[in-house]
């Protein structure tokens, strides 16, 4: 028994135990991920009938929700990508003095702002404008209001990822272009941006993956719609909000539908996440 209490043996055992504990931590984190994917697959797959995938939620399907999510992501990207990338250009190319630092700080803080706060903001923004007579009040629950919310979430993410993408481009590339007498803005647009295009795409995909799964701000701005898209000033269905409605619904059929809809949502989000990796890997391979 004495050898068990030998100091060096004890130290070695402690080393093994702690290494095992860290491995256990990894397993603990993988357990919920595995369970979520497994349950979504097992409980969701039977729900994926042709009717479910082609009918609107009026008929118990999710086609309108899929359409809504695609529309919302598209419109949001349309607003957020140019604004985000231009902000990224400012941060990487122009904002090297104190003002740049302040902008970066604010953008960083914005990426961490709770999405529900952004939902309240979009709702209240439209509401306050309608008080001033710009919009009719029902617009608070509309595609426009939802896009304002989602774009507010996406812009800072795209700004920071684009900044990092632009920083990947070596300064010598800029200097070479400038030395040829090419104006600075053309250098940025024609030399810097194209050479980090794949990293920009990764950033855009990360932003899309983030807003595509957002639920709380959509409940507060897009509300629900049992029909397909019927106007920018109307509420719109979306996959996350549809999952929520099905999940809190009372009937078993709705609960099954919730798993079916979340299977589609998870597959969509995971494939975007994995695609963003693939783009980065591709770039690494090419260089």
């Amino acid at each position: 028994m004495r050898f068990l209490f030998d100091r060096d043996t004890r130290r070695r055992w402690f080393d093994v135990i702690m290494s095992g504990a860290t491995l256990l931590c990894v397993a603990l984190a993988l357990l919920p991920l595995g369970s979520i994917l497994f349950e979504a697959l097992v409980r969701g797959a039977p729900a994926l009938t042709p009717t479910f995938l082609t009918q609107s939620s009026l008929m118990g399907g999710i086609a309108n929700a899929i359409q809504g999510t695609v529309i919302l992501i598209g419109l949001t990207a349309l607003v957020a990508l140019p604004v985000g990338i231009l902000t990224g250009i400012y941060l990487s190319e122009y904002g090297k003095h104190r003002l740049g630092g302040i902008v970066r700080l604010f953008v960083d803080v914005m990426t961490q702002t709770p999405s529900i706060v952004v939902g309240i903001f979009a709702y209240s923004f439209i509401f306050e404008l309608s008080l001033l007579g710009f919009f009719p009040p029902p617009l608070v629950f509309s595609v426009i209001s939802a896009v304002i919310a989602l774009a507010t979430i996406m812009i800072p993410i795209v700004a920071r990822t684009s900044e990092e993408a632009l920083r990947l481009v070596p300064t010598s590339a800029r200097e070479a272009a400038l030395a040829l007498g090419i104006p600075r803005y053309r250098t940025i647009l024609r030399v810097v941006l194209p050479s980090c295009a794949s990293a920009l795409v990764t950033g855009a995909l990360l932003g899309i993956a983030r807003v595509g799964g957002e639920t709380a701000p959509l409940i507060m701005t897009a509300a629900w719609n049992n029909d397909f898209f019927n106007g920018l000033d109307q509420p719109i269905a979306a996959l996350p909000t549809q999952v929520y409605r099905f999940a809190v619904g009372p009937s078993l059929a709705e609960n099954r539908a919730a798993w079916g809809a979340s299977l589609i949502l998870v597959l969509l989000m995971l494939s975007i996440s994995i695609a963003s990796r693939a783009v980065i890997r591709l770039r690494a391979v090419r260089r």
């Binding site: 991920l33 799964g213 909000t241 996440s273």
Partner: peptide
């Protein structure tokens, strides 16, 4: 491990 962050919060709620 990072995929845990890609799962939408409403799916966590359902789970």
């Amino acid at each position: 491990v990072e995929l845990l962050a890609a799962v939408p919060s409403v799916v966590y709620g359902l789970w």
